[in-house]
Amino acid sequence: MKRLFKYLKGTYLGLLLLLLYSPIAVMIVLSFNQSKSRANFSWGGLKWYYELFYESPEIIEALKLTLTVAILATIISIVLGTLGAIGIHACKKGYATMLMNLSYLPMTMPDIVTGVSLMLMFVFVNTYVYFPRGFVTMLIAHITFDTPYVLFSVMPKLKQMNPNAYEAALDLGCRPMKAIVKVILPEISPGIVTGGLLAFTMSLDDFVISFFTSESNNLSMLVYAAAKRGVEPTIYALSTLIFIAILILLIIINKRSDLESIS
């Protein structure tokens, strides 16, 4: 009886996985299809992969933009968010609560509202000084929604810290700057890594906010445009490559640490 239950549970999980993975599996299979048709499959080798790398400059451009924005936004939001967390932690209570609430705002706001509001502001600025919607505006938008994630990952680590450690360093003649680097930073670094990873994935995945704040396509915007046009097997090839990359990355992370701490 107990065994039967175990099998039933396993079957249930298997069915859900089937639901979650069948579209991805279909895409992987179709990326090797000879024709564009989805009804017939005949082996076409790496045809679409070749086209992806050599004949689709716009996809490669979008990939570059996505990665550049994600890396820059992650670095800047790590700096802003970590400094912010250290600052807020040392603030008076009223001011700290106000700043924390301010940080919740972009996280609870629907993406579309964030995107639209930033777009309105960027367009307004552009009427006075030349400020086109493109790389810079997208970067600003990404930093804005990334930074709270860093802040909220670092904050708990600061709270867990022994508050006397920093004071002790100062009493022993350490300059404040050095005390922060030598005492506080090592303690909060796991939080910084978690926050940075979150920020990076958020940035890679973003569609809605980028869609409104930029006119140059990132990967999501490109896929959206392609999806509206119809079948494009190069996108299947791209998805397959991205899927494999993420799979490998996650298996490595899972080997190294407890995944739940970063998920």
């Binding site: 802003l80 968010g81 603030c91 940080s103 972009p106 706001m109 922060i180």
Partner: peptide, 22 residues
């Protein structure tokens, strides 16, 4: 140390509160 929150606060006001006003 509390001054460290300055850039963060400024950024958040500039890019979340201001756009909402628009």
């Amino acid at each position: 140390r509390s001054y460290f929150s300055g850039p963060y606060a400024l950024w958040m006001v500039l890019f979340t509160i201001c756009p909402m006003i628009f």
